[in-house]
Every structure is written in C-alpha cells, then in structure tokens.
C-alpha cells in the first residue's frame, strides 16, 4: 500500500512540470493571439505597450524608457498574479482611462494558461 502511494506520488510529481509546461505552452498561444500585437516578451523591448518580461511581481509603470499614462503611473499597483489576473480580465475596470485599448480576456481557461505563461517570463 505504501509502495503504491509512493509510486502514485512519484508519477504525480513527474507529471506536474509537464502539466505546467502544457499550460505555459497554451498560454504562449494565448499571448500570441491576445497580447503580442502590442507587447513583447523580450527584455527591454517595448512596443506600443511595455515589455511583459518580468511582469509578475513588478510594480506598475516601472519599465525604464516606456512612457506610461498618468493613471497608470499613479495607480500604485504591484502586478501580483492575482492583481494581474484581475487586470487582464477587465483592464478598464481596474485602471479606468488608461491608454490600453484592450477589452479584456473573459475565458477563465485562457486566463489560467496566460498567467501560467507570464509567470515563466523572468
């Protein structure tokens, strides 16, 4: 019995990175279709929007060389996973009148995958 449990735990432990990788891979696709027009994931590469490299855990309006809107500069947000998720789901509700024109990502599965991918960018 103990041996069975150990084997199950081992298999689960081995599978978890794969599952996470799968979510991140799907998240990369979500990024490609939802975000890539305006945001790069390369360090220090800003487009119309700032780079998403290192976005998770970053303070808002902190990418050097990018010109943020006043409302973004004054938002005082730190992009924790929870805060970032809330923002991507409904950006105009979290920071009204910002320049970003994105309407938001409503699909919870896509949002999970995207968050998984963004957390790998550091």
């Amino acid at each position: 019995m103990k041996a069975g449990c150990a084997l199950a735990c081992l298999l689960l432990a081995a599978a978890l990175p794969c599952l996470a990788d799968g979510a991140a891979e799907r998240g990369k696709d979500v990024y490609a279709s939802e975000c890539s027009d305006c945001h790069s994931v390369q360090p220090q590469k800003n487009k119309k929007g700032p780079t998403l490299f290192g976005i998770v855990g970053r303070r808002s309006a902190s990418v050097p060389g990018f010109r943020y809107s006043d409302v973004m500069r004054n938002s005082g947000i730190t992009w924790t996973p929870e805060q970032l998720r809330r923002y991507i789901a409904a950006p105009k509700q979290v920071i009204p009148h910002d320049r970003m024109k994105y309407d938001g990502l409503s699909d919870a599965g896509d949002l999970d995958d995207l968050m998984g991918y963004l957390q790998t960018l550091h």
């Binding site: 890539s36 027009d37 305006c38 800003n46 487009k47 119309k48």
Partner: peptide
C-alpha cells in the same frame, strides 16, 4: 511610430 512590427 508604434514600436510594433509590420505583422501586427
């Protein structure tokens, strides 16, 4: 002008 590639 936008910092975006042609493909955008």
């Amino acid at each position: 002008q936008t910092g975006q590639e042609c493909a955008a």
